[in-house]
Design a binder for these strands. Structure first.
Lengths: 163, 163
DNA sequence: ATAGTCAGTGCATTTTTAGAACTGAAGTCA
DNA sequence: TGACTTCAGTTCTAAAAATGCACTGACTAT
């Protein structure tokens, strides 16, 4: 399968990864959430090659995750801002960061801490069920075919398990 | 910057992406959560090239996200199972899927639905604060330097915003 | 006139991926 | 015995993508 066909898959994960499943896109988005908005700032902070950065920003704009907005005339210069759709990626970024915090931190401890301004505490993100509010784990879910599903090889069971 | 240096960054996101920031790894992991465990099953379901699959599985085992366990003797055959560390990736997968459900579903609707077995309802994943239990959005967080942080270019402010 | 800022583009080199075929150990069929 | 099948990879070549560096173009500052 080619990468370019991935967005045609009847799988929301595959479709999402067709936009963000590369080496740099999520790092660019991390910086967007840290209020980085300009080409040279992304380039300097990430150490990414300029042609790749230009390509990724253009793709994120095409996907309506970033918007290119002028911040000055003469010469016209643009900056990149998260759209409402882009802001919805926040749980993805936070989940990825939390995994790194849990499992990939060195002996020095966590690189950054997150404080929830609403309650004032340092916190960890927890994924809960929108219906009952209880935490959701891999064994607590059953996957059912939805209206946009297409047939595939059958899956043994819908939940997951470990060792 | 080279990809191989990414895991040395003082950023949990960069470290996580050094393991999973490629085209295929998260798709392999999705199938792991669907109880797919064998080489040929991954290959057939994903349409991934066999050399790449072999490489990614080996890297996931090295990262202690999957474990290679024998399921028969003569000939000895191995299957790949999520470790406890791998199971902790569940929020990442669910967040990615949810983004696709929200923004990338076609007119036919969602490919699959998720039912929470504990409460019996179809649900969406919601990210909440471990301290107060309230939902957390991009504007509700302040980032503070942690013990493992290293200096970087200063960031304008720690929260994010949209258009 | 000269230098500097910012947002890119062009191009040659290196790395990664895609795709198909092949290996090896063992079991099954006739 | 011999041919065929299963499973988990490996080998090889061609195509695609990333890297690194220099360069352009529109303007401002001195």
């Amino acid at each position: 399968m080619q990468w370019s066909q991935l967005d045609a898959e009847a799988c929301s994960l595959a479709r999402t990864l067709s936009i963000m499943g590369d080496r740099w896109t999520l790092l660019i988005l991390r910086d967007c959430f840290l209020r980085i908005r300009r080409f040279d700032d992304f380039q300097a902070r990430l150490g990414i090659g300029r042609p790749i950065l230009a390509d990724r920003l253009q793709k994120l704009v095409a996907a309506d995750i970033l918007a290119k907005v002028p911040y000055q005339e003469r010469p016209v210069r643009y900056e990149y801002r998260l759209t409402p759709k882009g802001l919805d990626l926040y749980p993805v970024i936070i989940s990825l960061v939390h995994f790194g915090d849990q499992h990939l931190a060195g002996p020095e401890g966590l690189p950054v801490l997150h404080r929830h301004t609403a309650c004032g505490n340092l916190f960890d993100p927890v994924l809960v069920c929108s219906a009952c509010g209880e935490p959701v784990g891999p064994r607590d879910i059953v996957v059912e075919p939805g209206p946009g599903g297409r047939e595939r090889s059958p899956v043994p069971s819908a939940d997951a398990e470990g060792a």
